[in-house]
Amino acid sequence: MQAVLEATDLAGGYGPLQVLWGAAIEVGESETVVLLGPNGAGKTTLLKTLVGLLPMRGGEVSFLGRRIERLRADERIRLGISFMTEVGVFSNLSVEENLFLGGYPRSRETIRARAEEFLGLFPDLAMHRRHSAGALSGGQRKMLGVAKALMASPRLVIMDEPSSGLSPLFVGEVVKTLARFRTQGVSFLIAEQNVKFLEIADRVYVLDGGRITFSGTPEQLRADTAIHEAYFGLGGR
């Protein structure tokens, strides 16, 4: 399997504070990888370093076989990476405008057509297409974030805590939506605390203290009682 994203020996952080200590991560073709870890483990730092929002102190990042660590963040995005931040949407812009911006790197016609396609898939969003995203409910906003992240037909979607601020019911909705797109040749890298996302994971990494402490399938993670107890005792089965 060809790696879509491959990062080795990542070191990074904020100013004098080093957060990542040699983390390595790989996402394969059409693979869904979940990055689990408690608060402060460095999940967001890792994702931001991968897409170029934070400077790298060391290591290598390749996307589809091409080294990208010297590219600016917006250039990396245009190669076919989509990044959904915790907020995920432009709250002062309309639903439609958010979708258009999601497809920004593509041509105008492609964007219009794809926006219509997504509005068809999400009737809730279609109803509010001209309303500002800030007026949507938390669940609808996340759906918009997901649709926006998929607008540019990316090869890889990176998501930072898609469950944040959502009730358990909506977390289930988001997981269901993602499951729908998993089969369409898109790879996902999802940083989460919520183990519900393990349902759609092909592989799991556990990040703790800026280091990868576990790498394997969800089944292996469940079998690894020590890790399971330590981090997911409450959220697990």
């Binding site: 897409v51 929002l53 600016r72 963040a73 917006d74 995005i77 245009r78 990044f83 931040t85 907020v87 949407v89 432009f90 709250s91 002062n92 812009l93 405008e97 258009f100 911006l101 999601g102 920004y104 790197p105 105008r108 540019a152």
Partner: peptide, 24 residues
Amino acid sequence: SHLGLSLKAVRDDSLSAEMAGINV
């Protein structure tokens, strides 16, 4: 235009705009 929309995105949230592939 697309240009105007990208500018509005930059105004609203420059970080997210960068993450939409916009050269802020």
